[in-house]
Design a protein around this nucleic acid. Sequence first.
DNA 1: CGGAATCCTATGCGATACTG
DNA 2: CAGTATCGCATAGGATTCCG
Lengths: 131, 131
Amino acid sequence: MEPGHSEGTEAPAPHHPGDCRVVGTVLARIGDKWSILVVMTLTDGPRRFNELKRTIGGISQRMLTFTLRGLERDGLVSRTVYPTIPPRVDYELTALGRSLQGPVQALGAWAFSNLDTIQAARTRFDGGKAP
Amino acid sequence: MEPGHSEGTEAPAPHHPGDCRVVGTVLARIGDKWSILVVMTLTDGPRRFNELKRTIGGISQRMLTFTLRGLERDGLVSRTVYPTIPPRVDYELTALGRSLQGPVQALGAWAFSNLDTIQAARTRFDGGKAP
DNA sequence: CGGAATCCTATGCGATACTG
DNA sequence: CAGTATCGCATAGGATTCCG
């Protein structure tokens, strides 16, 4: 099977308010190596394939393709093909995709403001047992 | 190298306000298969190892150990050992860990309220080209 | 009970080459 | 330009066994 993001094939079965697996489902979608980067890059508007590739940097065309397919499949991103020569394809966030930005930015904000604390904790932890 | 969550070893280099890689850093931490489940399970208070294992379900002791180590390393979870027989170990969210719950729950809420939409999009996408 | 060590497989994903 | 196809290695992570 190709990388294409895994399905939640094992029936979830909830267990208490403020669920659990559901979150896992989302993270299985956007928690991979590239999806959020793509989503964030699309924040400023539609982008072409290679434009995304350059902006993100470090991503292979293979993974960009898979990531975009996955996001498109879940309705977070729309794909528009202009049958010109050379071909041109625009990727853009859908309404659903844009609605994801709030939560994602919240997470980003948390990350940003706690980066130092985390780094410190890491150093302390590693220093304490692997000098 | 053991599964232990990957480091952001490749110097990021920011590029514009509302960054990008930083989010990637957090997601590399909590975006893996189990971390959030653990964090969410610890929401209601301290839990013992096997208690976590049972509650989460489907996680191997190996991965639970690695996940907890990672969270502990980053200062999100604290580990308390009671030198009794048999031994007892409690895991609990730290202040930092609890501060992560806001963002995570925002994501959870988004997931929950958009699950149907996403499922529909998936079915439509798959149906359109792989009947 | 809580974990560490070893083994083994599925997979993620980069590199490269080919196509319309 | 925007993909698709194939190869190949590195990693994630489950199962199992052993230990204090």
